[in-house]
Design a binder for these strands. Structure first.
Length: 767
DNA sequence: ATACCCTTCATTTTT
DNA sequence: TGAAGGGTAT
């Protein structure tokens, strides 16, 4: 009798093959997490392995938390001692534990994207660079790629091609120097630094190699170069490394994930075993067949075919709408229908999309329908301005070298320290090679400061010094209260009497609550460890997000965020060329067919999230950058076999597009937002369709040029010389007209002045 | 020093 | 469309 009896044969093989390297190719919904948790339970309970000698690496903090919980159910308290975490969290921990051996200051700060941008902006100023000539964004991304490829500044500069690359090399060098001066690491550094340090300190590495007798790595298809190297380093001695992944679900190559890590596993470890988990326990037969068919179009695969014992279930609904707004309305109506029929309740439903921007119409329609929902991955709690301000103060207390944080709060709340003043101090600090903070202690040396500025700077320095003193003396909660009080931040929030300020107050209070909770739950809670945790949090990890989900709402998120999740009813929307696959992937296609394949994998991930019912939608017209743009159906749609698709009965019966609108002709002034002239309300079909039948993909009624042009003809009232009414400017006469369709712009003479107006935005009515 | 207005730019994706 | 940054007016 073994724990593993609960597994199917391949799962059991994967969980019980503990000696030597093992690659588990786990298809979507094949019980991957189950294998991982049972494997650990088996090691501890049946093979008597000490839990602290096991290392499990996951892709997200959330996955780490869930894994720990599930292991706890199998082996109890012992689960606490297993090392479980993301690569980033584990690396941050290693850097602090081994700071002394590595010659580091353990109080380093972890810079997020925001901090990184702030630092880069400052570097551009210091190096006298023009950010119009060279986009900081692009520099940051190139530096990040370089780090992920383990190329350090020196080598980057040496191998640079042309003056531009050399310049980026210089910026990279300056960026790294600044990070070190600030005693800070960015996300990429956390990984790269550990790998380098282990290379240089083999004795330290040897300790961990010896310690981690068993290593498990989840989502192996999405590991990048440094993560791969770290895995190799740590597994170097025992070689009991179990990598679990699915090459078909590799969706992070754009940010440096290297699919070769999984494809070449058997070459890296010649003695490796490979187990395939191909039985799917999640989806109905039709959904699975669609997924298999779609992914079958990719050429670069290990090869794997999922199967299921489940019934075929319903066919997949492929639904075509006029506009993105209609698409949103259709989805909401369908949800209401399913809810009213008791097919699904709202917490069982997910709406997935390619880009975050697509969430807006959905959100608006959900609100209108008063349906509960949560958007995953919006702005995370720890990125809100007031929260970051407060955290910046706290970071400064443990790491005064952190110039990014220092500059963030030096004049927040306002204390009369302006940009010019800061610049003077900064210049002096740079010239002398001092940190910004230490320069505050010797202001009399800084040239060009007036007495007032000096006084204010001195007071600020005094504030930080006294708070640092408090940090030594009091607990976390009291410290935070002191920061808020003594910095004047609380007073600032209270002075402003607006609803926004009230929201900010609440956020600050919530942060205080989190800190209290953290202090109570962790016996050895320090400010440093708290800051580390918050730095590595993602929106999905926010307690707030969890609470929202628990309320039973519909979940909205990008396809990327949906990885690893499952829902009984799934909508995938926006299946249109240039959106999904993205324009970028299409452009790159000629040079790199991999780009489209990654998009296809993303679609595959989306399809396989669905358990019982799947809707795939696309719109003929979509707002893009504020313009209404004609679209083409995604190439991926053709890859789903017709027999798996349903002639969409729902839309047929309700006939909501045609009827609703034609029933109330001209019910609104020609030009109200949702039905503006550039937004054809209901293009007439050349061949009349049966009453109530909605356009559909398989009816061959793809958007035609004629439909579009016809709609635009409605804009005759916008001819030169006509009088129109403008929402803001009142009555005016059209004096000129440029462009057509969504791009049309008018010059209109109002009483007093002439304005140029984009028809797509302006709310115009005939006057 | 601050506020507002204007222009520009962006849409992948996240640790 | 919108956010965000820069520039100009106050």
């Amino acid at each position: 009798m073994s724990i593993l009896d609960a597994l199917n044969p391949p799962q059991r093989e994967a969980a019980s093959t503990v000696a030597g390297p093992l690659l588990v190719l786990a298809g979507a919904g094949s019980g991957k997490t189950r294998v991982l948790t049972y494997r650990i339970a088996h090691l501890v309970r049946e093979l008597d392995v000490a839990p602290w000698r096991i290392l499990a690496v996951t892709f997200t903090n959330k996955a780490a938390g869930e894994m720990r919980e599930r292991i706890e159910q199998l082996i109890g308290d012992q689960a606490e001692k297993v090392w479980i975490g993301t690569f980033h969290a584990i690396c941050a921990r290693l850097l602090r534990y081994e700071a002394q051996a590595f010659g580091l200051d353990p109080n380093f700060t972890i810079y997020d994207e925001d901090d990184r941008r702030a630092l880069m902006r400052r570097l551009f100023a210091a190096l006298n660079l023009d950010d119009k000539e060279l986009a900081p964004r692009s520099v940051i991304s190139q530096i990040s790629s370089a780090k992920n490829a383990m190329i350090e500044p020196l080598r980057f500069t040496q191998e640079a091609n042309g003056p531009r690359q050399r310049q980026i090399g210089e910026i990279y060098t300056a960026y790294e120097t600044a990070l070190r001066q600030n005693n800070a690491f960015d996300f990429d550094d956390l990984l790269v630094e550990v790998v380098r340090q282990f290379d240089q300190h083999k004795d330290v590495l040897a300790r961990y190699q010896d310690r981690f007798q068993y290593i498990l790595i989840d989502e192996y298809q999405d590991t990048n170069r440094p993560q791969y190297l770290l895995s190799q380093q740590l597994a170097g001695q025992h070689r009991n490394i179990c990598c679990v992944g699915d090459d078909d679900q590799s969706i992070y190559q754009f940010r440096g994930a290297d699919i070769r890590n999984i494809l070449d596993f058997e070459q890296d470890y010649p003695e490796a075993h490979t187990v395939r988990l191909e039985q799917n326990y999640r989806s109905t037969g039709n959904i699975l067949a669609a997924a298999n068919a779609v992914i079958g179009h990719n050429k670069h695969r290990k090869g794997k075919e999922l199967w299921t014992q489940a019934d075929p279930g319903d066919r997949i609904d492929l639904v075509h709408n006029d506009t993105d707004r209609d698409e949103a309305r259709f989805i909401i109506r369908t949800i209401q229908k399913h809810r009213d029929n008791w097919d699904f309740n709202t917490s069982e439903i997910a709406i997935l999309y390619r880009t975050n921007a697509q969430s807006r119409p959905l959100e608006e329609e959900l609100q209108r329908a008063r349906l509960p929902y949560t958007i995953v991955g919006g702005i995370r709690f720890y990125e809100r301005k007031e929260v970051k301000d407060l955290l910046a103060y706290l970071r400064l207390l443990v790491n005064p070298s952190d110039a990014v944080s220092l500059q963030r709060v030096i004049n927040v709340p306002k204390r009369g320290i302006g940009g010019t003043t800061v610049e003077r101090v900064q210049n002096y600090a740079r010239e002398q090679g001092f940190t910004l903070y230490s320069t505050l202690g010797q202001l009399d040396q800084v040239p060009g400061l007036n007495a007032r500025a000096r006084k204010h700077l001195d007071e600020f320095y005094g504030l930080l010094k006294s708070l640092r003193q408090r940090h030594e003396e009091v607990g976390l909660e009291e410290l935070v209260a002191d920061v808020l009080e003594n910095s004047g931040y609380r007073a600032m929030l209270h002075a402003e009497n607006t609803p926004e300020a009230e929201a900010r107050r609440q956020n600050v209070e919530q942060l205080q609550a989190f800190i209290s909770e953290y202090a109570q739950n962790n016996e050895e809670a320090t400010l440093t460890s708290f800051l580390e945790e918050t730095a590595l949090m993602t929106p999905q990890d926010d307690a707030e997000a969890d609470a929202e989900t628990a309320k039973g709402g519909i979940t909205l998120m990008t396809l990327h965020s949906a990885k690893g999740l499952e829902y009984p009813l799934v909508f995938i929307c926006g299946l249109e060329e240039k959106l999904f696959p993205t324009l970028r992937a299409i452009d790159e296609e000629a040079a790199d067919p991999q780009a489209i394949e990654e998009e296809r994998r993303l679609f595959y991930v989306g399809i396989t999230r669905a358990e019982r019912r799947l809707y795939i939608t696309y719109a003929r017209l979509r707002y893009t950058y504020g313009n209404l743009v004609e679209t083409l159906p995604s190439r991926f749609l053709e890859e789903i076999p017709q027999e798996l698709l349903k002639a969409s009965l729902e839309t047929r019966e309700s006939g909501w597009t045609g009827r609703q609108r034609s029933a109330r002709p001209g019910r609104k002034p020609a030009n109200r937002r949702p039905d503006s002239p550039t937004r054809p309300s209901k293009p007439k079909r050349t061949t009349p369709a049966p009453e109530g039948v909605h356009y559909e993909w398989d009816e061959g009624s793809q958007p035609s040029r004629a439909d579009f042009d016809e709609a635009i003809d409605q804009e005759d009232f916008l001819a030169v010389g006509r009088w129109v009414l403008h929402g803001t400017w009142g009555r005016g006469q059209i004096t000129a007209r440029q462009g057509s369709g969504a791009e049309m712009k008018l010059s209109i003479r109002f009483s007093g002045q002439t304005k140029r107006v984009a028809v797509a935005y302006a709310q115009l009515e005939p006057a």
